[in-house]
């Protein structure tokens, strides 16, 4: 063949079915794991935990295999500009779906703050609900005392969370510097900026763990501490999970940069990672504003 194929359609691939099995094993294991540990069901004797971890390992195996194949194809020059555009579009739409996932939890936060907590305290036409159910309940946000009497303290915004904001915004800048360096083919600078970004991501996660320990041990702020704790931990938790994912992706990119992958005009994986990183950064800014600050 004299010219490259117009659009690379792989003939068959084992990785999707590996991935499907992996998802199934993970899901099946997760439920059994939860059932083993949950007081509500207490199903003893199922092997939930090992099955769940096996599933996760299978997912990691799938990613290695699948992305490895794609990388090898790219290096062999089997990818066209058109395929590159497919990848870009897919990543953008995928990020939109992630935005919507966070939107639900923000929706729950706003619903609690604007509707359910005031209503329980008798706002609008809900005086009777208030008097009949929990006449002593008073509206505050953060919700220091739930209707059923669980108490918690609020997380202060201008301590660790603010430091984390600075760290994450800085890391968004450094990843952009790394991208500029890659485009100008300055490999040393690229490695340095990317390494710094990974370090900032890891620092963010460490501080997040410190914050969680502080919340649980000193503030009485936990998942079970009413709707404030629920929204706080679910939002920051899912964000943290995404930062973890992003840091892993950045680390992979760093390893690939050190192995000599990517050229100044062919580095989709790097760009996708940086888009993802900017996305978790923007989500954090919303989190900082609505979960911690106001």
């Amino acid at each position: 063949m004299s010219e490259a194929p117009r659009y690379h359609v792989p003939h068959s691939s084992p990785w999707p079915i590996v991935g499907s099995c992996a998802l199934f094993v993970t899901a099946f294991g997760a439920v059994n794991f939860i059932h083993q540990t949950s007081e509500k069901i207490g199903a003893e004797g199922s092997f939930g935990k090992p099955i769940f971890y096996t599933g996760l390992a299978m997912i990691a195996f799938m990613f290695f295999g699948w992305f490895g194949t794609v990388i090898r194809e790219s290096i062999r020059g089997m990818n066209s500009g058109l395929l590159d555009r497919s990848y870009r579009m897919s990543m953008a739409w995928f990020i939109l779906s992630e935005v919507m996932f966070f939107a639900v939890f923000f929706g729950a936060l706003f619903y609690a703050r604007i509707i359910s907590v005031p209503w329980l305290a008798g706002a609008g036409t809900n005086l009777e609900t208030h008097l009949l159910l929990w006449p002593d309940f008073a509206e505050t946000w953060p919700l220091f005392m739930t209707p059923s009497g669980d108490a918690t303290q609020a997380m202060e915004a201008w301590g660790l969370p603010f430091i984390n904001t600075v760290i994450l915004v800085t890391s968004s800048v450094t990843v952009t510097f790394a991208h500029w360096a890659l485009k100008k083919n300055q490999r040393i600078l690229l490695g340095a900026w990317l390494g710094l970004t990974v370090a900032l991501g890891a620092t963010f996660l460490t501080l997040q763990v410190v914050e969680y320990i502080h919340a649980y041990t000193e503030l009485g702020l936990s998942l079970g501490a009413g709707i404030y704790g629920s929204t706080f931990f679910m939002l920051t938790g899912f964000h943290g999970a995404h930062v973890t994912m992003g840091t892993i992706m950045l680390t992979v990119m760093l390893c690939r940069v050190l192995t000599g992958h990517f050229t100044s005009d062919n580095h989709f994986a790097f760009e996708a990672t940086s888009w993802y990183w900017h996305f978790v950064d923007v989500i954090w800014l919303f989190l900082f504003t609505f979960v911690y600050w106001f």
Binding site: F105, A108, S116, W119, T146, G229, T231, F233
Partner: peptide, 24 residues
């Protein structure tokens, strides 16, 4: 997101759909 909140309400003590915890 909705089923995730269900799962945490069922097993991890969150109060998204429980008025006693300030949810609804």
């Amino acid at each position: 997101g909705a089923v995730t909140m269900m799962l945490t309400d069922r097993h991890f003590g969150t109060s998204f759909f429980s008025a006693a915890g300030g949810g609804d």
